[in-house]
Design a protein around this nucleic acid. Structure first.
Lengths: 132, 132
DNA sequence: TCGCATTGTAACTGGTATTGTTACAATAAA
DNA sequence: TTTATTGTAACAATACCAGTTACAATGCGA
């Protein structure tokens, strides 16, 4: 989100290098580049190797936090994970995973709906000035 | 949840040892005991050292998945965590965390509401038989 | 075409977390 | 007092993440 917000407040047509972004986040440029790779794979940004660097492929208002979450956060698209090998000889061990599945999916969906309702543009609008 | 479901389907008055529970989960008894320690601290179970082992302190219908989640899953009660030291000299770095705070809290709350709506008793009722 | 800023990625380190294991003192029921 | 059981320490193995260094590949601009 930090990276995308920086790109959102950059004038259209201007690019940002991983070096400059790393300065704002206060980390190493390679960390930024690894994240840019994920955002690029998700189609959110375009990265130009030679001059300039990175720009958004969509308007900030058209990128939801769910897009970002899916691009960088989720492992295998599942928020909750389970112990992989319960004992199949036990009635509970054999069926516990299926019994939890629906509830956990509903919980994850509720989370994602909230993320889908907010855009990078909205977050960017909340930055820059001191709060209160 | 596996541990609590086992306790929920155990006849009232009977206790379960960490050994038996480990058999169903297919893991080591010490792993179970570590989890029992968290559940005990949260007031969900009572553990008797000498004979028997563990039993529920509340009816399975009175234990929500949110109770369980809070007992074992959450680090510092926050689902999302942030990079700790953005650059305070950058307008975005200085304010990005506050700009995200509300949205992420709302998303976490939506998740927790879904977990609060389901009880251990309901999950236990879904185990034991084959689905479909 | 050449130079050069920049990316993409590999390799490595250090830190932290998790699972599983062994071992054993503490506990308390019978 | 005996005995089954817990609570916990210690340790190994594994995995993951942030950060760092290094360097080949890319492709823009002169």
């Amino acid at each position: 989100m930090h990276v995308l917000t920086l790109l959102a407040v950059t004038p259209p047509g201007e690019l940002l290098t991983s070096d400059r972004m790393a300065g704002s986040v206060n980390t190493n440029p390679v960390i930024i580049r690894r994240i840019l790779g994920q955002l690029k794979k998700a189609g959110l940004v375009e990265v130009r190797a030679a001059a300039g660097g990175t720009y958004l492929r969509r308007a900030p208002a058209a990128i939801s936090l769910l897009d970002v979450y899916r691009a960088v956060e989720v492992v295998d698209n599942r928020l909750f994970s389970m112990h992989d090998k319960p004992n199949p000889k036990c009635p509970v061990g054999r069926t516990i995973q299926a019994a939890l599945e629906d509830t956990l999916t509903r919980a994850q969906t509720a989370l994602e709906q909230q993320l889908a309702a907010v855009s990078v543009a909205q977050v960017a609008a909340g930055t820059g000035e001191l709060v209160g």
